[in-house]
Design a protein around this nucleic acid. Sequence first.
DNA 1: CGTCTTATTGAATTGTCTCAACATGCGTGG
DNA 2: CCACGCATGTTGAGACAATTCAATAAGACG
Lengths: 252, 252
Amino acid sequence: MEKLKKQIPHIGRRRVPEKLAAGEVACQDCGMDPMCSILEYAEEGSHVPEGVLLRRRQVARGETIFLKDDPFRSVFAVKSGSFKTYIPKVSGHDQVVGFHLIGELIGMEGLSSQRYPYTARALQDSSVCELRMESLAETGYLLEELQRGIISMLSAEVAFNHQLITALIHQSADQRLAGFLLNLTKRLYSRGMRQVEFQIGMSRSDIGSYLGLASETVSRVLTRFQKNDLIQLRHKRLRLLDPDGLREIAEH
Amino acid sequence: MEKLKKQIPHIGRRRVPEKLAAGEVACQDCGMDPMCSILEYAEEGSHVPEGVLLRRRQVARGETIFLKDDPFRSVFAVKSGSFKTYIPKVSGHDQVVGFHLIGELIGMEGLSSQRYPYTARALQDSSVCELRMESLAETGYLLEELQRGIISMLSAEVAFNHQLITALIHQSADQRLAGFLLNLTKRLYSRGMRQVEFQIGMSRSDIGSYLGLASETVSRVLTRFQKNDLIQLRHKRLRLLDPDGLREIAEH
DNA sequence: CGTCTTATTGAATTGTCTCAACATGCGTGG
DNA sequence: CCACGCATGTTGAGACAATTCAATAAGACG
């Protein structure tokens, strides 16, 4: 990603100054930025058709932006709010496969099969930017840089999943949750969200599904963390009081 | 991958007929094939430098082809034998993150960070082909088709990992092992290995690490499968006697 | 042929799940 | 704006699958 910027250094500077709504990620902190940059740069050559990049669509809490097995059209970036991606199950509980925070991308994994492998639903009122890969492909317009960005992102995703798998396998409920909380705040921090307190959109059962725990276990562990002054958790507002303590637990 | 072949239909036909050593995967069944094909095709234009594609290096059992955090150089394809990839842990057991059978690729995930995220070790005497991405990149030679192949492979990998995560979370030891055995044979079958009996290179603890089970549990379940005439397992030779029975268990 | 590693089997322990009751929050409509 | 009802979260007790520890058996390899 950073490499990409170095290759096209004039990008970013020439970007139109943006007005940030409260709680929105800045473009330079957004995961879509490398691709947006390339597209905007390319626009001068006017090869990019209209409607390839749709900016800041509002998505209401509970709304889906695509369903599992929908034909792959677009990659989305979360501008504000948060999403969960999950595989719907007939037998009761869905399987949550990911949380997508501010500045992160959704839908990339549809590239191979040309179908989305999961449903994406807003956990709270959110907004997204949409990159219509379909239109891009149709015009035969798939810049090498763009592809490189995609490759970079996908291989990062794979690495992250390896970590997740390792975590799920060997770690106790305490370790998983400590790691999860640290991961959340780390991700938000890297996107420029530097508050001490965060709104976590996901429910206990979402977290449980994602981490392979019963929602009751999630609840129990979180209250215990709270009793030990590791975190503060009121309703859906989270504050890490003792990140080092959590790290201690996560790494054992 | 298939799409790739359609786009360049003359590829494959023009390939030099190869002599297959016993137990080797045929080039047309190998995961590297789309990339090899492109490279060979391109050779006529003589843009590809020497030494980008190294064919059939022998790797002895127990030997590593790269270590975790080594600088990323190449992607490898397994021509014969099998490999495990794992994250070494100071505290005793390593975490196995993947098995790589005949015709499958290793190392792709190093692309993003430019370092290998795991160590790759031969489970038995094996041979590999090596694609030196480094040299490719240096010459500025990164075909769009090649990139598309990589993207396709990576997003398939992500999808597979989602499945794996789901499996690890909700499934019992029996289900995981049944699924694992079916997956192994399915992969071998798709690479042209059609024997009823296979040499599985991995130990019980490798399997346990990979599936998140104690090696004792793996052992117990496998012997139970054997008692129920689902499989035959002598030493390291495996035969599926009742795939439907296994499917029944895996899908519950 | 003996040694070292890997696999099997047994018995006791434990972390997490399930089931269940209760509490709290949230959105809706009156 | 409040009251109601449903969804979500908390807490407790019992059940159970898989782990751990341990002892033995069976291969692998020089």
